[in-house]
Every structure is written in structure tokens, then in C-alpha cells.
Design a protein around this nucleic acid. Structure first.
Lengths: 219, 219, 219, 219
DNA sequence: CATGAATGAGGGTTCATTCAT
DNA sequence: AATGAATGAACCCTCATTCAT
């Protein structure tokens, strides 16, 4: 509207960035960060390669934007998990979304690509780590809130271990789920249920023990 | 000495292949499969780019060789885990090796790279899957052998779920361990111990239930 | 202007393809198909090497385009020969054009290059053969039309032999003419005239014999 | 035998050069001068690439040696033609040899390769021209010797035209014969016979005319 | 704002040639 | 004399990026 030298925040500009990012996501999905070319992305977005550079300074910038979006999707997935009635079902839904390639959800091949990239680019590593920390905190808070025994989480080491485990399991399952598209969803559910049951059993057990006497940490 | 039309198996040739593969491993580690150039690898190996093609027909062949070696390392790691006195300790050792970047052990950034590549290249996918199946079978057999209750593993679904879970956890932990080099090894141990304890508790529980009456499957 | 997904047929694109092909022709002339590099061609065309690949998918494609053009020139030359008042003069003009290196005419060094290439590449061989067949048919038809005795061409073997001979002579003379730039055009004319005279004498002779009695083939 | 710093003329050395040249000939035949590599030639010769450089200073030198050999074969072919009872049959034999790929005979694909190379490399051009001149002279002398009318050849222009024509026809037929391996040998013979008959008829005619009165040049 | 032609550095690969053994 | 490992320049081709229109 206004004669705005900074065009970056016009509604149109936002829409264009959106188009580019969605196209990039699809291309990266199909061919990886390095395999997808700007020309591919431009074609997928239905625009010219040159135009992309009006909205992003470089391919690397697109990659970083995609990474941030995916991490943001991860956070959103967390919210959904937290608000789901059934915790297990929530995680399964999340994993299913990973497999789906849907735009609004973290996606396993991209997750691999991102993780790999993070091992090389310190800036990406920092971004990923930051997102990780945020998720970890949310998760911790959620677990504390719903825990049968608050005590369990008073020991930060124990709490961290549980969260580390939970996140590793989810990621590990998600990667396998993506690597093997034939993997039976029921098997996934079965494995995850068992795992969560284990966590809860542990919690219960700990709660019982805690009730018996004040504080006896048994590793 | 011998009238050897194929130079590929002389001692020197083997040593050169080794030099190249080790250089490639380091380069792939630093820059990824696509980011590392033949020139990089040649430089790292202290030889000219052309020479590499005396020992490998293409860069892709080097990548595949690296992948196979890593998968082989994975299998070796499994053997070590199986033969370790303490199962948990065995896995922790394995994960520690992943982090070390040592040539003889599976290595987490490469694992990510491989998984990402398998998403796109069907041949690599097949290789990875094959290795996976082999490990799964070994693991299954090992778990059956040491199980307190053989019955538990008679239900293939249940057995598969346990293995899926175990492998996912190990991989998930390994990736996190590699992504965050500051991650406290003790925390890792704590998480893994808890997980294994959960698995064993489940087994025990199941054995008890099985003893109560002949066969009551409770998912 | 138009919503044209294929840029290949815009006026500019055609002009560029033309520029490239003409540059390629000159380079191939100077250094042969294999001796001329894409960089040479790009330099000759006054453009960057990369740009060439916007208009041709590979060097091989350029070679094939050049070959097709040359064969097309051969067909055009044939038309000119057929429409020339004097057959001998028409052929001499054609040969002179071969020597000129002009873009619109078949050119002897390229003809050699093409023939040599056809020896190895079956696809090129097929293209050349196809063009050859076409020329042969045209020539046959022209000779039949202007023949003093139609009977002569009723024996396909005899007709084919005459055409084979004619084409071989023209090509042979053209190659020599190109190999030895000092070769006197008058000598060329003299030789060719004699040859054509021989052909016509044969025809006449045959016609006379045929008139004597119905059919006496004397090889 | 002797401690000979110039090893170039040892019997062994000659044998080695022979081996290399024959291998080179086969490789050049299959893949052309540029398509055949030193490694190919070494392999075909059953020796190491390095050894080749003990007997030839460069690939170019091998090419030149091959060219000289082929030209020499051309000269030998000429001798055979001259000594054949039937001139036509002699030429047909020669052409058949061109097609055969036999070591001792000029060979059509190589002839193409050589002619093409001669248009670029002045040194090769000179060699070829030299050989050509030699053949021309021999042919001239032979034709004069066997001519029914010596007078015909007293006009050098007329003589040169006949020779130019003859050589062009032979080369032209040879190239076509090599380009189209399916070409019927009988057709070849038919065409050539007709051509030679034409030459002889011309000669006869000229002799008759010459007899009529002393000297009346008609074209 | 948008295009897509143009650039040129750099990638994988080949191969004539050299040289230590 | 002979090997074949090693070199490095040059090849074909791709693609991130720029810029005239």
C-alpha cells in the first residue's frame, strides 16, 4: 500500500515467501537439501528462479527457513500431543504425521536432513538445539503436571533421563517408520504403548516407594 | 608375482582402497556425502584425484562402500553388545563408539547421512534394510535365548514390537548423543538403564502371568 | 508473451541455437568432433559454456544436430543439381560448395568426420543411411525421367549400379578436392565431364541395343 | 646383442613396435584415433602402458606411424592391382581388402579417420599428399604402359583427369562399401566394371580418332 | 514485480604421460 | 626391459547467483 522500501512484510511478500517455502519443502523432501536445485524449487513454485532471490538472499537462507519451520512444526506437534486425551495416541498421531509429508508437520526425511546438516553447520546446530531445549522444557512441565508423584521429578537427573528417553524413542521410532514405509502402524502402536506403559509403571512404582518412606533414591 | 589380470586384490591395492575409504569417511563426516568432493577426498588421502578412480569406479561407489562398512560396523557392534557381560553397558559402549568418530565403529552423523540417502536411493535403501533385518534377527535370537520366559517371544508381534522399540531407542539415543556432544554420559546411562529395566520388568510380569495359567495374551 | 512452458521455440532461442550450431560447425571443422571442446564452441559463439546447455542437452546432441544439418544440406545440394541446366555444372557447383566451408553447404571435412563417426555410432549410422537412401531415390527418379531409354532403368541392379557409381564419384572427387586445396577446378571439371560422358555413352549404347531387339542384357 | 644405446633397431625392439602398432590399428579401427586410449592399446598389445612410451614418444607418434603404414598398404595394394591379370578384379580385390580389416591392407574406417585428420594436421596432410602423389605417378605410368594409344597420355591434363577420376571412384566406392556393410559385392563389381569399361571405351575412341589424323584434341 | 537468459566456478571423471620399482 | 601406480590438466556438465529487460 504505502511506498514501502522494505517490501519484506507486505501481504503479497509473505504469500510469495510462503509459496517458495512450500515448494522448497516438497523439493527437499524428494531430493534432499543438496539434490534440489533452485530451478527445481522455482518450477515447483511456478515462478522464475530470479524471483526467488527477491525473497530469499540465498539457497542456504531457504534451507534455514525450512529448518525453522520444521522445528516450529515440531513444537506444534508437541502441543497437540499435550492436549490429546491419550498420550500414546497423541504421539502416534505425531509419528503418523511425520510419515505423511503434510506441510504442517515435521517430516522424517527432512528431520534426517536437518539433523545431518546440524552436525556440520554450527548455526543450524544452535537453532536445532534451541528448539530441542524448548521442547524438553515443555515436556518436563507437562510430565510434572500430570505425574502421579511430583517427587519423581524433583530429582532433575531423573527427570532429564525420562525426557531424554521419551524424545529418543519418539525420534527413533519416527526414523524407522520413515525408513520402512511398510512398517505396520499397529506394530508401532504396540511398541510405543509398551514403552509408555513402562514409563508409567516406573512412575507408579516410584510413587509407591516414595510413599513408604520419605526419600530413598534407588538409581 | 602372479599373473594377475585384476590388480584389485593386491596388497597395495587393498591398502590404497583403505586410505581412500578412510579419507572419504572423514570428509563425509565433515561435509556430508554431497558436500565432500572427490578433490577433498583425494587431498585428505594425500593423493591425486585421478588416482581414486583406479580403485573406485565412481564417487557413488565410494559412498556405497562407506555405507556398507558402516553397516558392517553396526553388525560388529551388535556382536559386542551380545557378548558384553552387561547388556546395558554393552549398548552404552556402542553409543560411545558412535560418538567417537573412530573408523571401526558406526558413527552417528554418517548414520544420519545414510538414512537420508536411503530415503532417495532404492539400492541404498535395500542395503540398509538388509542390514537391519540381519540385526533384528540376531537380536531376536539373543533375546529369546536369555529370556526368562520363552513364551513371551512366541507371539511374533510382541517380539517384533520389543525389538523395534529397542532398536529405536538405541538409535534415538545415539543420534541425540551425537547431536549434543555435551550430553552427559551418565544421563545417557541412566536413561538407558531405565529403559532396559522397563523391558525386563515387562518380561518378568509376563512370565508371572504366563505361569498363572497356560496362555492369556494381554496385548 | 505467450504462456510458453517450452522456451525452445522462441525467436531468441532459435537465434541462439543457430549461433551455437554455427560456432560448433566452425570448431568441428577446425578440430573435429572430438577435438573441439564445449569451451571452444562457447568461445567461438561468444558465450559462456554453461549457456550452451540451455539450448542443447549435451555435446553429442550438438554433434547430431550438425550432422543432420549437413545431411540436409546434401539434400538441398541435390535439388540444386537436379534443377541446374547442366548436370555436370550442377555437380561441379556442389563440389565447389563443399570446398567453400560455407554454412549452408555440405562440407568435406565434416563429411569425413560424419562418415567416421557413423562407423562407430549406430544411431548416426542410421541417420546417415536414411539420408543416403533418400538421395538415392531422388537421383534414381531424376535419371529415369531424363533418360533417353527408360528400359535401362527397368533392371534395378543396373540402375543401382549407376547410382552407386555416380554418388561414389561425386563423393570421391569432393573428398580429394577438399584434401588438396590446390587441386585445379578445371581438372575437376574435366574429370567429371568425362565421367558423365561415359555414363551417357553407356546409356546411348544401351538404348541402341535395346532398339535392335527387344531385350538383350549385356551386363 | 651389442651394448647399443640406440635400442631402436634391435630385433626385439622392432617386434615390440610391431605389436604396438597392430594393437593400435585394431583399437583405432574400433574406436577411432581419439576414442582409443593408450590403455586400450596397451591392453590389446598385452603390455603395460608405460612400455609403449619406450617405443613411441607419444600417442600422436603412434597415430602417425599407423597412418604411414596404411599409406604403405595403399601403395602395396596398387602393386597388386597393377600385377593382377584383370584390372577390374584387382581393384575389387583391393576394395574387398579395405572392408576386411586385415592388417596388411588399407582399411576404410581408418582411411576416413586419416583423411579427417589430414584436414587438420599439416604434417599428416603432407604425408598423405606425398603418398597420393606416389600412387598417382605409379598409376600414370601403368596406364601409359598398357594404353592402346600412347597419345592419349601425352596431354598431361587429360592423363591427370583420368587418374583423378579413377582414384576418386575407387576411394568413393571404398567409403560407401565401408559405410554400408550390407552393400552387395556384386553391385560393387557391376558399378566398377561399368566405370572401367567407360574409361576403356574412351581410350579406344580416342585412339581411333588419333589414328584418323595426327592430333585433334576434343575436350 | 517478474522473467529467464547469462555467467562462471566447481563437480565428477578420463587419460596421456611420467617414474619409482 | 617392463610394470603399473601416480599425476594433473582438461573434459563435459550443473547450478547458485546476477542482471538486462
Amino acid at each position: 500500500m504505502m511506498n514501502d522500501p522494505e517490501h519484506a512484510f507486505t501481504e503479497r511478500a509473505l504469500k510469495q515467501r510462503e509459496r517458495i517455502l512450500e515448494a522448497a519443502r516438497l523439493c527437499f523432501l524428494k531430493r534432499g537439501f543438496h539434490g534440489a536445485s533452485i530451478a527445481d524449487i522455482a518450477h515447483e513454485a511456478g515462478m522464475s528462479p530470479g524471483l526467488i532471490y527477491r525473497y530469499f538472499p540465498s539457497k542456504q537462507a531457504i534451507i534455514k527457513a525450512i529448518i525453522e519451520r520444521q522445528l516450529e512444526s515440531g513444537r506444534r506437534a508437541l502441543e497437540e500431543i499435550k492436549s490429546a486425551e491419550d498420550f500414546v495416541q497423541g504421539i502416534l498421531n505425531a509419528i503418523e504425521h511425520w510419515r505423511s509429508g503434510c506441510a504442517n508437520h515435521m517430516n522424517a526425511p527432512l528431520f534426517l536432513e536437518i539433523s545431518a546438516e546440524a552436525t556440520r553447520d554450527p548455526e543450524i546446530a544452535a537453532t536445532v538445539e534451541e528448539a530441542d531445549r524448548l521442547i524438553k522444557n515443555h515436556l518436563l512441565e507437562a510430565m510434572q503436571r500430570t505425574a502421579r508423584s511430583k517427587v519423581l521429578y524433583q530429582d532433575p537427573r531423573r527427570a532429564n533421563a525420562r525426557i531424554l528417553l521419551l524424545m529418543s524413542v519418539v525420534e527413533g521410532l519416527a526414523i524407522r517408520a520413515c525408513r520402512d514405509p511398510q512398517l505396520d502402524p499397529d506394530l508401532l502402536r504396540c511398541a510405543l504403548t509398551k514403552f509408555i506403559a513402562g514409563l508409567q509403571a516406573d512412575e507408579r512404582e516410584y510413587a509407591a516407594a516414595a510413599q513408604a518412606h520419605s526419600s530413598c533414591t534407588k538409581t
